[in-house]
Structures are given as structure tokens and as C-alpha cells.
């Protein structure tokens, strides 16, 4: 992996003439986990799509840049709410999908290594339908890891999981994505309180930086400072428009 750059998005966006957000300035520091928290419909996902280069439907006026000045294309990996696994491929082939799609020789040894890191070594030959929701999302994480991109964009990837799987998946992702620039869109204050090294609150008014507890994420979900911060975030979320 090349060095992780910081991200900066500054400007306003509209879809079909309807304003989505802005003008706002969003900064995600290099090599750190930034949570973008906000209610539905304020344009969090649009921010992510613009950074991922999937914004053709969006009219964006402004600037999207990486801190090192190089283009973002080819340096971004995406994890969505849906695991986006191909049902006709087994777990290993799903993890190696990126290499196949680029015409590179897939490295099965490396695929098995990342599957072992997400704890799915014994499921390598199964089809996605044979896995639970949490396991499927771990395959998606393994696929993201194998892509080995310095910037990782997460679009509510844990929101469809049950509480236990979600907590374990949050911990695993924080551990395995450390050192990359992560921008994590979520509407869950608890998740932002656990995972965000930096937390941005997005509302119709714009962006606001909220300072999380100083201890390093992933924070314990039952630690008093995590819970207090979660409460504060939730209150601010309730008070925004």
C-alpha cells in the first residue's frame, strides 16, 4: 500500500437541480479513521460517492482532492451497506474479484491470508449463501483488504448486522484498516463514538467537528467516556435540523 493521503472535499452538490448539500468543507486527515455522522438525507452518501468517483449523476461545484496532490482514482476502496458478494463465486473468488476484473493474475495465497485475518479461513470454499450476514460482511472486508488501497470509504457497512455481529465487525475493521485513511458514513452515534478518531456531524446547516475522547479507537463500547460521547453526539444529532 502506498502512503495514505488526507482527503478534502469542498463545495456544493445538487442532483437534477435539487440542492443536496453545501457549501461545505470536509477534511479527513491522512491515515486516520473519520466518521461522518448525520441524519438520513443530508447528503452523506453523496459525499462518499463523489470521493469514490461515482458522482456522474451529481452536479458538484468545488474541489475534491487528496492531500498529496495526486488523483484519487485507483487509490480508493469501497464497502457498502450491502456486502455486494457475487452469489456464483465462492468466498475466495469473491475476495479476488478486483484482480480478475483488472486482468491481473489473482493471488490465491494472499486471498487465503486475508481470509484468515478476518477469521474465515475454514469458509474459503463456500458460496456466500452458506454464510451468515456478519460472515458475508467479513468477506467484503477481506475483499477490501486485498484491494490494498490507501483510502477506504465505508457507507454504513455494519448497519444491517445484529448488535453482536456489528460490535465484532467494528472492532475487526478498526484493527485491520488501521493506517489507512478511512471515511466512514454512519447514522449511528454509538458507532461514531467507538470508531472515530475524528467525528464530523453533518446537517442541513453544514459540517461541524465534534472532538471525541482522546483514547484510541476502537473504544470499548461500555467505557464511560465512550458512552458520554455517544450521548453528546446523539443530543447534537437531535438538535440539528
Amino acid at each position: 500500500m502506498s502512503a495514505a493521503p488526507s482527503l478534502r472535499l469542498s463545495g456544493r452538490a445538487a442532483i437534477g437541480g435539487v440542492p443536496i448539500f453545501g457549501p461545505v468543507t470536509l477534511e479527513a486527515p491522512a491515515g486516520a479513521w473519520t466518521c461522518l455522522l448525520g441524519p438520513s438525507g443530508v447528503g452523506k452518501s453523496t459525499v462518499l460517492r463523489l470521493l469514490a468517483g461515482l458522482g456522474e449523476a451529481v452536479t458538484f461545484e468545488g474541489e475534491i482532492a487528496a492531500g498529496d496532490g495526486a488523483p484519487l482514482e485507483g487509490r480508493v476502496a469501497l464497502m457498502a451497506q450491502s456486502d455486494l458478494l457475487m452469489p456464483w463465486l465462492d468466498v475466495t473468488a469473491n475476495v479476488m474479484l478486483g484482480a480478475r476484473l483488472r486482468g491481473e493474475t489473482p493471488r490465491e495465497d494472499r486471498a487465503r491470508a486475508v481470509l484468515a485475518r478476518v477469521g474465515l479461513a475454514e469458509h474459503a470454499g463456500k458460496r456466500p449463501e452458506a454464510l451468515s450476514g456478519g460472515q458475508r460482511q467479513r468477506v467484503a472486508l477481506a475483499r477490501t483488504l486485498l484491494e490494498d488501497r490507501p483510502v477506504v470509504l465505508l457507507d454504513e457497512p455494519f448497519s444491517a448486522l445484529d448488535a453482536r455481529s456489528r460490535a465484532r465487525m467494528q472492532h475487526l475493521s478498526a484493527e485491520l484498516l488501521a493506517g489507512r485513511t478511512v471515511l466512514h458514513v454512519t447514522h449511528d452515534a454509538g458507532e461514531a463514538a467507538r470508531l472515530g478518531r475524528h467525528v464530523l456531524l453533518m446537517s442541513r446547516e453544514g459540517l461541524e467537528t465534534v472532538t471525541p475522547p482522546t483514547c484510541a479507537p476502537p473504544r470499548r463500547f461500555d467505557a464511560p467516556e465512550t458512552l458520554a460521547f455517544q450521548g453528546r453526539l446523539l443530543r447534537q444529532l437531535m438538535e440539528t435540523l
Partner: peptide
């Protein structure tokens, strides 16, 4: 979603 994943992967 699959097509977008493929695009982000530079397929």
C-alpha cells in the same frame, strides 16, 4: 451496486 464496485476496482 455490483457495477459501482467494479468501477471503484478499476475494472
Amino acid at each position: 451496486g455490483w457495477l459501482e464496485l467494479a468501477r471503484v476496482m478499476n475494472a
